[in-house]
Amino acid sequence: MTVKNKTELSLEQSEELLGVLKERFENNMNRHEGLEWSKVEGKLSSNKEKLWSLNEMERTGGEPDVVDYDQENDTYIFYDCSAESPKGRRSVCYDREALESRKKHKPENNAIDMAAQLGIELLTEEQYRGLQELGNFDLKSSSWVQTPHDIRELGGALFCDSRFGHVFVYHNGAESYYAARGFRGSLKV
Rank of each mutant, 00 (worst) to 15 (best):
V40W: 07
K43I: 02
K50V: 14
W52M: 01
L54Y: 07
M57S: 03
M57W: 06
E58K: 08
E58H: 09
E63D: 08
V66I: 05
Y69V: 01
D70Q: 07
D70K: 11
E72H: 15
E72P: 14
N73A: 14
F78N: 09
D80W: 08
S85Q: 03
R89D: 03
R89M: 10
C93H: 01
Y94H: 03
D95G: 01
D95L: 09
E97V: 08
A98D: 02
E100W: 06
S101C: 00
K104Y: 11
N109S: 15
I112K: 13
D113S: 15
M114S: 14
M114G: 06
L118S: 02
I120P: 03
E121I: 03
E121Y: 07
L122P: 04
E126R: 13
Q127M: 07
Y128L: 10
R129Y: 03
G130Y: 04
L131I: 05
Q132H: 14
E133F: 05
G135M: 10
N136I: 11
F137N: 05
F137L: 10
L139I: 11
K140P: 01
S141Y: 13
S141K: 12
S141T: 15
W144I: 10
Q146L: 15
T147M: 12
P148F: 13
P148G: 08
P148S: 09
P148Y: 13
H149I: 15
D150L: 13
L154S: 05
G155L: 06
G155Q: 06
G156S: 08
G156Q: 07
A157T: 07
L158D: 08
C160G: 04
C160V: 15
D161F: 07
S162C: 09
H166P: 00
V167R: 00
F168T: 06
V169R: 09
V169A: 08
V169P: 01
